[in-house]
Amino acid sequence: MIAVELRKLLRSRRTWATILLVDALPTLVGVLLAVTDLGPRPGEGPAFLSAVLTDGTLFPLAALAIVLPLFLPIAVAITAGEAVAGEAAAGTLRYVLVRPVSRLRFLVAKLASVLVFVVLTVLVVAVTAYVLGVLLLGDQSVTTAGTTSVSGSSLSTPELVGRTFLALGYAILCMLGVATIALFLSTCVASPLGAALGTMAVFVGSALLLTLDASDAVRDYLPTRYWLAFVDLFRDPILWRDLQAGVLLQVAYVAVFFAAAWANFATKDVAD
């Protein structure tokens, strides 16, 4: 069933259009930076963006920091919100279920296909940004001397590559949390757009609550709490605490919302 879902995903023109749209913003930022040579002031703008002008190999990370707060989760919410509600609206859900496909297996396959979508998107963004960063940005003499870690020491190229992949993996896991919330909502509502908007409300609300001191008691449970912790991978030594907490939190979100999606969908009347 997973293979079937992947074929559906990869053959849909919308998948690729979404990926291109997500990729467009960091590409535009990269080109503008290269043309104007105007970096953001320190302390403003997304993480790593001010460092990109001197070291182009950091641009994949800056690109990740650009798309992670909003663009990527929106794309994921739309794709995952489509999962059940979209098939129901198109009428294909009933034909899938009478094939028969077990409802649990159907949900697993949907989540797996969204995961592949996230991986694809993140990789496309990272690769485009890397090419752009090396070709247009940065200063070669600095790059050959090694990259500066956030803590001021230098990172060798294998270290940088390894940590960049860890960061991408972490971002993918965070997006899986978003996807599971959207999947659950997708089993609840009739319209795919409703599920996507509901998911956006969750992470925008979470991001808002994080800025309030009053929400101190719940902040460690908010889904977006540790999203930007991938920056900690580039400190020296790596600060694992938030990353560990972030991984556990996202795993908990995936477990809870997947269980809820299953609980809701397993005996739901498929009446449309």
Partner: peptide, 20 residues
């Protein structure tokens, strides 16, 4: 009847046949 609109009829049948 329902099918995935962006695929051909043949692809749709192959897809449904692969399910389950």
């Amino acid at each position: 009847p329902a099918a995935y609109p962006h695929l051909s009829g043949r692809a749709n049948l192959a897809l449904f046949d692969a399910m389950g």
